[in-house]
Design a protein around this nucleic acid. Structure first.
Length: 585
RNA sequence: GGGGCCGUGGUGCAGUGGUUCUAACAUGUCGGAUUGUCGAUCCGAAGAUCGCGGGUUCAAAUCCCGUCGGCCCCGCCA
């Protein structure tokens, strides 16, 4: 046996025991006739003490070498107890030391405070980075969180079922990662963007409660909270309605968080309609930890005599405002930056009024009638020092842009989440479709298997007015989950494909297997998927999901540790009958 | 596809045209000293063609162009 205990285990209860420990040399403190080694493993640090001067001469260990030791657990003298360590009341008096493997010196970076090391160096030597306490704890937390979800869903009678990684490319949605087939030259598998169709088919098979810790792949550009491969907690249930899924989702999230963090999660989470989220926050994933709610001031500006405002109102546009109580903290330069952003988004610029005592400043001051100002002051409850920013145009555009600005300003003022809590929020009643300007056609807002809300489907005059039985879970302004009740009747699924403008032969070719399955007794069903990486990131208060993924990719999708992606041998391409045709530079 | 920030010993950084840049400081590494440290301490040493390529200049880490790499954002992500 190489070790009898871990480095985080021994305490005052173990005094006198003969033990064997193994781990990494974290720190050496050499005092000449006494020498200390901090021995570290996943569980903690135990101080090894050597006070035999001959032994010290021969010891020759280097930081981050792996050693095993034998010795006796002894109590530390009172004055040398280290209250920062769980093992700080004891130390192990060394009797025998074995260097299992040396570490090259100097190290690429110091393990203890590598937080300030450039990320490219951290990623290249990820194995060293993962020895650091903070990121190690993130990875351990992630594992415990997943375990608690398995525990909860297991008790709730859910089955964990794997679905294929090599599957069929489907139109719509994100760009697929493709895998060439050798046995069927010229054909490709796609890596799953989500197990969506397979989990629906499992419902049709009668596995009425399914979940999976599912790896998903989307070949799109990366962000701090987006990796090309990521993990979903994927769930699907039969014989359920929207609220059943919402309830079990809240229960599983509550259970896993309370089990892994020492906090209380209040359920049920608040719900707001999509339309309300857009009106008030200008986004479908609002951060509700602070105010700055978008306020419609169109009525107060009617007959303002201002040409550009009259024109906006004439074209059925609106004017909305954000009120910033601490208006002095937003400078003219900040407003300039906002203007630049708006110009990039196809607008002219933002209006502003700065209220000071009983006066006010504004670039359009000489055009503003006193009664308009009074109206705004009263209705928006303006106090001295406040700044309002306002923007006019068509409602959707105004909401979207002000939603962005709301976040920009809150970042600048650092007023987000002042009490550092978790603000969960359900967004419900999404539209089933939206109009895509790029493709100039109607597309699914969630995915084409989402069931419409029946009344709105029956009564619709325009597909864009149909409501979906879909719901998103938002945590502190980040979407962490989403799902829907699915269509379980073939005829309805065909109608949806037709509204989407997909030809019968095309949907037959791509989704025929689903339509077939729906025709053999498909139960009503629905589900949800949680973005595990984002959820863990937020729970661990990290700024990037790379901090909670063991081996993440860079913004260009490369792995600095392994060097992927890379060229392959020509024989491999030959087997696949693939020719590379790179454009000349 | 676009916008922005960054790249200087192993690591983190200072230095924005010159002779206090023959590149500072901190930390680590190596050698020595040291009996109670735990961010140990003290003494000493080594370690950098300033990401790479080109240009401007009497003179470039510093200015310009290109390129490579990392990060943040827009587009994209049903």
């Amino acid at each position: 046996m190489i070790r009898t205990h871990t480095c985080g285990q021994l305490t005052i209860k173990d005094i006198g025991k003969e033990v064997k420990l193994a781990g990494w040399v974290s720190k050496i403190r050499d005092h000449g006739n006494i020498l200390f080694i901090d021995l570290r493993d996943r569980y903690g640090i135990t101080q090894i003490v050597i006070d035999d001067s001959d032994e010290i001469q021969n010891i020759g260990v280097k930081p981050e070498s792996v050693i095993s030791i034998e010795g006796t657990v002894v109590q530390r003298p009172d004055s040398t107890i280290n209250s920062k360590l769980l093992t700080g009341e004891i130390e192990v008096k060394l009797e025998k030391i074995n260097i299992l493997n040396d570490s090259h010196q100097p190290l690429p970076f110091e393990i203890e405070d590598a937080g300030s090391v450039n990320e490219n160096v951290r990623l290249k030597y990820r194995y060293l980075d993962l020895r650091r306490n903070e990121i190690k704890e993130n990875i351990i937390f992630r594992s415990k969180f997943i375990q608690s979800i398995r525990e909860f869903l297991g008790k709730e009678n859910f089955l964990e079922i794997e679905t294929p990684m090599l599957t069929k490319s489907t139109p719509e949605g994100a760009r697929d990662f493709l895998v060439p087939s050798r046995l069927e030259s010229g054909k490709f598998y796609a890596l799953p963007q989500s197990p969506q169709l397979f989990k629906q088919i499992l419902m049709i098979s009668g596995f009425d409660k399914y979940f999976q810790v599912a790896r998903c792949f989307r070949d799109e550009d990366l962000r701090a909270d987006r990796q090309p491969e990521f993990t979903q907690i994927d769930m699907e249930m039969s014989f359920v309605e929207q609220n059943d899924i919402i309830n079990i989702s809240e229960a599983v999230v509550k259970y896993a968080i309370e089990k892994t963090l020492d906090i209380n999660i209040e359920t049920p989470f608040p719900k707001i309609k999509y339309s309300e989220a857009m009106e008030k926050y200008g986004t479908d994933k609002p951060d509700i930890s602070f105010g700055f709610i978008l306020q419609n001031i169109t009525d107060y500006l009617k007959k303002s005599g201002l040409d550009f405002i009259d024109k906006i109102i004439e074209k059925n546009g609106i004017i909305k405002a954000i009120k910033i109580e601490d208006g002095d903290k937003i400078s003219l330069k900040d407003i300039d930056n906002i203007n630049q952003f708006i110009k990039e988004k196809g607008g002219n610029g933002i209006g502003w009024i700065r209220f000071k005592d009983n006066d006010y400043q504004s670039p359009i001051k000489k055009f503003l009638k006193q009664d308009i100002i009074e109206n705004i002051k009263t209705n928006l409850n303006i106090k001295s020092g406040a700044l309002i920013l306002f923007l006019g145009g068509n409602p959707e555009w105004v909401n979207e842009i002000l939603g962005f600005i709301r976040i920009q300003i809150s970042d600048k003022l650092k007023i987000k989440n002042p009490d550092n809590k978790f603000y969960f929020l359900w967004i419900v009643d999404f539209p089933l479709f939206e109009f895509s300007k790029e493709e100039n056609k109607i597309v699914s807002r969630h995915h084409p298997f989402t069931s419409p809300e029946h009344e709105s489907f029956k009564n619709h005059d325009n597909p864009l007015n149909i409501t979906a039985q879909a719901y998103d879970l938002v945590l502190n302004g980040t979407e962490i989950g989403g799902g829907s009740i699915r269509i379980h009747k073939k005829s309805m699924q065909e109608k949806i494909f037709e509204i989407l403008g997909i030809k019968k032969e095309d949907y037959q070719e791509k989704f025929g297997f689903l339509l077939d399955a729906l025709s053999f007794g498909a139960p009503p069903h629905g589900g949800i998927a949680f973005g595990l990486d984002r959820l863990i990131m937020l729970l661990k208060k990290q700024d990037s999901i790379r901090e909670i993924i063991a081996f993440p990719k860079t913004q260009k999708g490369t792995c600095l540790l392994s060097g992927a992606p890379d060229y392959v041998e020509s024989k491999q391409l030959k087997d696949l009958k693939i020719k590379i045709d790179l454009p000349e530079k």
